[in-house]
Design a protein around this nucleic acid. Sequence first.
RNA 1: GCCAGUUUAGCUCAGUGGUAGAGCAACGGUUUUGUAAACCGUGGGUCGGGGGUUCGAAUCCCUCAACUGGCUCCA
Length: 642
Amino acid sequence: MATAGKRGHCQSAGDPLDCFDMADPVQASSERKSLEDREKMTDLERLRHSAAHVMAAAVVRLWPTARLDIGPATEEGFYYDFDLPDHRFTPEDFPAIEAEMKKIVRENHRFEKAVRTRDEARELFAGRGETFKIERLNDIPEAEPISTYQSGEFVDLCAGPHVMRTGNVKAFKLLRVAAAYYRGDEKNQQLQRLYGTAFPNQAELEAWLKMQEEAKRRDHRKLGAEMSLFVFDAEYTGPGLPLWLPAGTVLIEELEKLAKESEFEAGYLRVRTPHLAREKMYRTSGHLPYYAESMYPPMELADASQAAGGGGPDPAAQAGGIASDRYYLKAMNCPHHHRIFAAEPRSYRDMPMRLAEYGTCYRFEQSGELFGLMRVRSMQMNDAHIYCSPEQFPQEFDAVNAMYLKYFKIFGLEKYVMRFSTHDPSRLGQKFVDEAELWKRTEEMVRRVLQESGIHYVEVPNEAAFYGPKIDVQVWSAIGREFTIATNQVDFAVPARFGLAYRDRDNTDKTPMCIHRAPLGTHERFIGFLIEHYAGNFPLWLAPEQVRVLPVTSDQVGYAEEIVRELRAQFVRAGLEFSHDKLPGRIQRAEEAKVHTMLIVGAREQSEGMVAVRRHGQGNQGARPRTEAVAEILRAIRDRRD
RNA sequence: GCCAGUUUAGCUCAGUGGUAGAGCAACGGUUUUGUAAACCGUGGGUCGGGGGUUCGAAUCCCUCAACUGGCUCCA
């Protein structure tokens, strides 16, 4: 993993694998900003960076032994890293720090820039015991000037820029305390990081805080519990292993229905594979030994001759002198699909061969990385592998792309970026498989497809997978969280590892290319995203409870039951509620449960064969003939409209 | 895995060393109901698990776990 860059995945030279890693949070980069970047800093970033100085100054006043590292602006505010062995920050310290910050703001110091020689700066920080600053000083390229900023008694090694005076830092708030490894490397010591945010004025700060509150309301973990979609039962099931409740299972099955329909239309063949496989599978794929740590530990069958049955023990294990047989829970489906491809002789007439499966994978994510449904240890992937010839590739890739766009339209996803990761020619044969021509051609094809479909994409050099370029789809949930929700990868290398081949027209064996694709990602992350995207107000086709019929009095129960029967006969998820509550109470509960459509039937409706339609969140839509209302519901479900 | 915080009834939360509480939900009954909460009653908790201090622990201490916020990681 040493060659892996800061933020990508599948980029290490040791990784010849598919990798549907769905996580890719945006992280504040700990890399140095160039001088040009600094000039581009927005006013808000200047303000926040200045606020970081004010906070650091306050901390040093309160804890004079604190040593400073760095304090940049981030997307939501700023942080500053401290080394302070004799005190651990807790949120209880915030009022004192904020009070001291206010004092510094009132003192209204100028941010005074001073350009210094290296030796002067070194001496200055050595005198203050600021060892991190001296190390950071050594990072600054020879050509760049060294500058410090002073506000009051506080001096920091800093290239700026800042606001004019501490008095300009008007509205700020400390947010949280966290640990952070020095230089972002877990081999280094941990520093204490204080996060805060700052805005030009109090009103904007408060608006932002309010937005954060709103975000919490649509958090998928909260809504998932409220709507009984899933639970985590760590004590019995295990951390990161969700149990899908009936309502959540509806979402899964509707998504699978969508996927199966689109994949059927697009000529995919469905396959099914077990949740585990022998060690040899992952040794051949290359996952072992590099990634064993990210997989659940193997199940070891001590008596191999007995365990192995007809096949005998794993020869590789025997060769190593181990008379045992190991099975691993699968962390990805591709090796299994490769073996399916290899199961029978293949002809060019079979190509392209598109093997699809909602495969369940298990990844032993570190405990601290688990995050609701977004980062779990068991996941069901909208997986498929397309085996094709290089000639067939553009068309296949284009079709995959079209499927992505189809899905985005269905879900009303307007804000997304495709992140196109390409190779670096200078690293062919090391980080990237040594196929210069294939790289060039494939990347050009991919680029052209992206451009022609008018998709918004960014190209990221040097972040491709070992075996080919890839596209990650990044989306934002309605609350502004960014996720990699889907991925589409080109693979020229792994089919060869498995010895995959097809007989071509010229009667020679050729190795196929492979496209790994998962436009709906995993159920877990995709549904987590959808919950936030819709704030739990699912469109009719997805809504766990689509229709609830509410008779006004017991006299209409029979009529209501008739309507429910009619709907259920058409596979509409409809129910009836008649309880001791008055109508407004039952409406309230249906609204709270986010039931998509309520059909209210009283004496008036019954006598005229009507229903009064009420849409969740939209109030009373008025009475309509029952047949018309039912037909409209069926149409909307069929068209996957809201 | 690391740092910090949190963990009390199904849910939201109150309870700072002296008999575990409220609202909602659940259940039972009354009410026959017209577009976001009718009324009355009942049951429900080993206060995350374990250990310790104390006459006495939800409350103080230790430890383990899960979750949350970050960091690292992310095949």
